[in-house]
Design a protein around this nucleic acid. Structure first.
Lengths: 220, 220
DNA sequence: GTCTATACACTGATAGAC
DNA sequence: GTCTATCAGTGTATAGAC
């Protein structure tokens, strides 16, 4: 019970917890919330079945923690880029570049899959749908003003900024799914793919204001 | 056993089967494959539990049939538009318009959710992941040539056409998820949102060839 | 064709030994 | 802290009455 051994215990504890989290992330992503079993998670973590319940009171809590991690992690990364310096358009492009590169680094794409699992099967977990809605609302609150700013400068496409944000998020989620299922997409998926979805096709940089209409009809 | 009664029986049979399919679609979409139970499906269909097994040998087969329906339905709709007349760009825009409007009609968005469920939890069903990959391959085979054609005319954005197609599909899937969870998005989500993701920002219709470079750097 | 009742396997969660 | 053994509950699939 000396302070020394206590510190070691804490270290061991967090290490085991990390093993559980990592294993649960993989199993949940592969099988879904209901499809995953605590036995499988324990096995993937290389631990005994009962030990998982020493760290988590229930399967729902394990899942919930991963979802929280994914949601808050995404929000913080987004905040970091949206509150940075530079024009609105520059911040959006920088953010898109970060997102795409992160899809191929570590377990990031797994967290996107977890969010998707939570959206499609999270009704069984009390309060989870509301929590997701709340967090998504914060995403929009963060992104919409920047999109509006980029629309004012003419760089972002006109129209409902919230819809633009929704399209952006949708593409990110979908691309994460693809990278999760197939490998070797690093060179095919580029930030330009995301940025282009936000771009105003009629934008003329800042010199020649020929006043020509946008290339193609918008309501087609 | 007269032909008359046999015909009536067939009619009843297909009617009951339709009830099961419709109920299963809703339950699977709401709970996921593993989260859905056969009891719930029977209850939603207004039928007894055992009767469902008179029409389907297993839960996996029910799900599999819905997935097949969704995948082949999407493919046929896509074929219809891609093989239509008009320029490649016109066909793509017409297809995008159809997709967006279908998201708000009937159970279409539910089928998109089913496909997503199959992608994220379908490993438990033998042969399903392979089948999905195969069908997705056919989507690409159908779409990529049209995108290439639209790139040649300058209307579609340059770059890997398969990646463009992937981004397009990703956005469709994500928007379907949103319309499934929240209602009243009919006016916010427009075909332009999808079309814009494919558009070449540097395209100049066909008159003034000022030769100016594309508005913004592509690798940002 | 339709229903009820049941066998069997599996999973989440707990108890208790080391 | 870690493990094994166990219980209660649930879900799939089947059997058999009507």
């Amino acid at each position: 019970m000396s302070p020394r051994s206590q510190k070691l215990n804490n270290q061991m504890r967090s290490q085991t917890l990390a093993k559980i989290d990592s294993a649960a992330l993989k199993v949940f992503a592969a099988c879904g919330y209901h499809g995953a079993t605590m036995r499988r998670i324990a096995q993937a973590a290389g631990l005994s079945y009962g030990l998982v319940y020493h760290y988590y009171p229930s399967k729902a809590k394990v899942f919930r923690r991963l979802v929280d991690f994914a949601l808050t992690g995404s929000l913080e990364a987004m905040q970091q880029f949206m509150h940075a310096s530079g024009s609105a358009w520059e911040r959006m492009t920088a953010y898109a570049a970060m997102v795409v590169s992160s899809l191929f680094a570590g377990d990031t794409s797994l967290y996107f899959v977890i969010i998707l699992q939570a959206m499609t099967q999270g009704r069984a977990i009390a309060g989870l749908p509301a929590h997701i809605s709340r967090m998504f609302g914060r995403y929009y609150e963060l992104l919409v003003p920047v999109i509006k700013e980029a629309q004012a400068s003419g760089e972002a496409a006109p129209g409902d900024p919230a819809a633009l944000a929704a399209g952006f998020f949708s593409m990110v989620q979908g691309l994460a799914m693809l990278t999760f299922q197939h490998q070797g997409l690093e060179e095919r998926i580029t930030p330009a793919l995301l940025v282009n979805a936000l771009r105003n096709p009629g934008y003329v940089p800042r010199s020649q204001s020929t006043g020509r209409p946008r290339p193609s009809g918008r309501k087609a």
